[in-house]
Design a protein around this nucleic acid. Structure first.
Lengths: 154, 154
DNA sequence: TTGCATGCAAATGATTTGCAGTCGT
DNA sequence: ACGACTGCAAATCATTTGCATGCAA
């Protein structure tokens, strides 16, 4: 982890920026939560545990700066908040959702089904995939069973 | 077009909603701009030309309603505004999006790649798929080229 | 009458910005 | 001292909500 911090420090300095304590705390939070897609508010709360005096605006400014330097990716999943992701080439997130339109339940599928598609995108469209989001809307098993029962009764 | 309006009217009525003049004006704007991904504000401005007395809140409420009824798709490309897309008659309106996290550009892919996956879901998870949504976040071709140039310069 | 719909204005929530003070070089 | 950096509060922007009114069955 120290190695990664050092690398980021150099990236900052090469562009004339400093790795201040606030920025370092923010980067550490991102490193410690590489798995997740943290929102700015999430990052803020986690950073506050290490550096309680930090301001939300600083977190936003830091994330924006890191984003410009391509240290993190700014992602948008349509839930109204921007999410940030450390740019590790190795970490990819694959989760799909089955959302039942009848009962509203949501099931996560951890399989990665899109590997071949992503390869195709890179080749055919020259699009470098960082992440994807795949949601299916439909009727879940238990609602199908409920429906069947109802149909039989009537 | 009248046929499509009628169809939407029936979809609304089947759920207990009415096709009010404001809603009809909004739907007409969406039909007339089927090609584009309009934001709520865009729709609002266009609807105002037909029905100047309409309020922005009504446009938002209408779009939200149509979205729930799956008449339109609510899309988010990370530029800070939600965009809306009329769902074409054909069930094969399954397009996917390539969203560049750097420049915010969006490209549509019209292929339907998920047929086999949907079959698998029905079998392995007993989940009956009605609709899906697939977005890829990544770096588009032109941003990759820009990055390369920048890297070379330094 | 009853309740869905509307327009307006005010409220909200995420993010940005203005500004005065702080810190390292 | 200079400019980069910060925290705070106020500003902004998209979207939502409260509420009194309007309208159709």
């Amino acid at each position: 982890m120290e190695a990664q911090i050092d690398k980021i420090k150099q990236q900052l300095q090469s562009q004339g920026y400093k790795l201040t304590p606030q920025r370092e705390a923010t980067v550490r939070v991102l490193l410690e939560n590489e798995e997740d897609h943290l929102s700015a508010e999430d990052v803020f709360m986690l950073v506050k545990e290490k550096a309680p005096e930090i301001g939300l605006a600083t977190v936003y400014r830091t994330l924006e700066l890191l984003s410009e330097l391509h240290v993190v990716h700014k992602l948008n999943f349509g839930d109204g908040v921007a999410r940030y992701d450390l740019r590790g080439d190795d970490t990819k997130h694959h989760h799909h959702h089955l959302i039942c339109v009848q009962c509203g339940s949501m099931q996560e599928i951890m399989d990665d089904w899109l590997g071949p598609l992503e390869e195709r995108l890179e080749k055919e469209y020259s699009f470098h995939v960082i992440d994807h989001r795949l949601d299916f809307q439909g009727i879940c098993k238990s609602c199908q069973e409920k429906d069947q029962k109802k149909d039989t009764e009537s």
